[in-house]
């Protein structure tokens, strides 16, 4: 067993885990953060995407023990101050959700993109979410959601700059 310390959504956590436990299992089974989903277990579908030190990764292909000393962000940390984030609201407004199973991973991939590229091109958006399989929506509304969120965030920034 291994003692690990890490943060999840800004909160310090401490856990004792076996070597063979994945980060995904740690999040879902130990920390009850079931917003992160398992869709394939081999890093192909992106349903388990979380941010590791701000960057999207598939948590099914990372050992829990490897999280020691790192910052993890999950979908449960996305809503801010009791309200939805701009990104979450954009997913609702463009109709980017159907069954919802891919949605948390999709939002985390989009969050990672907006962290590194606040004004992404459509190509950037597609590259960022192409590792998240969605069987319901056909992706168009998801791409539109990320675009809308980026525009709204840019608009808000501009608004602040002017005031």
């Amino acid at each position: 067993m291994y003692d690990i310390r890490f943060t999840v959504n800004g909160q310090p956590e401490h856990a004792t885990v076996p070597a063979t436990m994945t980060l995904l299992d740690l999040l879902r089974d130990r920390l009850a953060l079931t917003g992160t989903k398992e869709g394939c277990g081999i890093g192909e579908c992106g349903a388990c995407t979380v941010l590791l030190d701000g960057k999207p990764i598939t948590s099914c292909l990372m050992l829990a023990v490897e999280a020691d000393g790192h910052d993890i962000e999950t979908i449960e940390g996305e809503a801010v101050g009791g309200g939805l984030s701009v990104l979450q609201q954009a997913f609702i407004d463009t109709g980017a959700i159907q069954c919802g199973f891919c949605t948390p991973g999709m939002i985390m991939s989009a969050r990672g993109l907006l962290n590194r590229t606040p004004d992404p091109s459509d190509e950037n958006i597609v590259e960022a979410i192409a590792g998240n399989l969605c069987r319901c929506t056909g992706y168009e509304a998801i791409i539109a959601a990320v675009r809308l969120a980026a525009d709204r965030l840019a608009g808000a920034k501009q608004g602040r700059g002017q005031s």
């Binding site: 953060l33 079931t34 917003g35 992160t36 999950t74 979908i75 449960e76 996305e78 809503a79 939805l84 979450q88 997913f91 609702i92 407004d93 109709g95 959700i97 919802g100 949605t103 948390p104 939002i107």
Partner: peptide
């Protein structure tokens, strides 16, 4: 908008 949207974008669903 979908009735279930908030549950799904927050991971609460």
């Amino acid at each position: 908008a979908r009735a279930d949207a908030v549950d799904k974008v927050t991971g609460a669903a």
